[in-house]
């Protein structure tokens, strides 16, 4: 027994090291998202405050680019409203208009500034300057003018953290625009401009430049929000492995929208009740 204590005292450097390393590794490997969220949320107040004051300064350098993208978005929305096939101005679609209004109304957009962002890790997160006080919940998605950004990970009162599309935990339901075949969008960690869809059947005809957008099957994002376009593809087994050129410029994100589905709980409850019966 004394030898045991002697060992302990002799290697006290080692034990202090083990204790600190253990605390860090518990944080890394903790499967319980609650602990992680406590750790991140306690930081949100201070770190979020520091980051939002620095992003206030940083945004001045990008005012022109931000303005241009907002004007381009306005132009796109005007085109949608006044285009021929829009349901706003044609009389023969009155019945249809009623349902679309309800459909569109399910989603609420909340404007937000990106206060911190990264693209360099395998698992990237963003921080936005909106929180529960602005109506953000954990089941929201995040989009920008150019496409999908990610999913809300955690919310505090005035800030929220977002799982970027560039994260191994982000799985987004995507579809091919022309043929409506849906698949799951993942990121392999190599290039922040390319993501992958590996589960679209090989009989589906693909071509480079084909648009890819959200499928609307996940209850988080509305249908038809742009994700990107087909860059390259190859047939592996029964499936096409598609490399998707993302339309969202993740390196230069400043203004984004949090999308909240007002019917999320109702829809998932219904879905879960089906799963329970099987």
């Amino acid at each position: 027994m004394p030898q045991f204590f002697y060992f302990f005292i002799r290697f006290k450097i080692f034990w202090v090291f083990v204790i600190f390393e253990a605390i860090s590794l518990i944080l890394v490997f903790n499967g319980n998202p609650y602990h992680r969220s406590v750790y991140i949320n306690s930081a949100n107040g201070l770190v979020g405050g520091i980051y939002s004051s620095s992003s206030n300064v940083k945004q001045y350098f990008h005012l022109k680019a931000i303005n241009d993208s907002l004007v381009a978005e306005n132009a796109r929305l005007y085109t949608n409203i006044y285009s021929k096939d829009s349901s706003f101005h044609t009389k023969d679609t009155i019945n249809f208009k009623d349902t679309t209004a309800k459909y569109v109304g399910r989603f609420v957009y909340i404007a937000a500034d990106v206060v911190s962002n990264s693209t360099a890790y395998r698992n990237n997160y963003l921080m936005l300057n909106v929180g529960t006080a602005d109506g953000v919940t954990r089941q929201c998605g995040v989009v920008c003018n150019d496409g999908v950004v990610g999913l809300i990970y955690d919310v505090s009162e005035h800030f929220c953290t977002v799982i970027s599309l560039l994260n191994s935990n982000a799985k987004i339901s995507a579809k091919l625009d022309s043929v409506n075949n849906a698949g799951t969008l993942l990121w392999n960690g190599l290039n922040p401009r390319l993501a992958q869809i590996d589960d679209i059947n090989k009989h589906v005809k693909l071509e480079t430049g084909q648009g890819i957008s959200t499928s609307g099957l996940s209850y988080v994002f509305p249908r038809n929000i742009k994700i990107g376009e087909v860059d390259t593809f190859e047939v592996v087994g029964n499936n096409n492995h598609i490399s998707v050129k993302l339309s969202t410029p993740f390196e230069t994100l400043y203004k984004v929208y949090v999308v909240r589905n007002l019917d999320f709980e109702e829809e998932t409850k219904l879905l879960n009740s089906i799963k329970g019966k099987q």
Binding site: E21, S24, I26, S118, M127
Partner: peptide, 16 residues
Amino acid sequence: DLFQMTAGIHAAATVF
């Protein structure tokens, strides 16, 4: 870690 929004990886690496 707090500033990079990661959990524990910077702490573990720096302690090592």
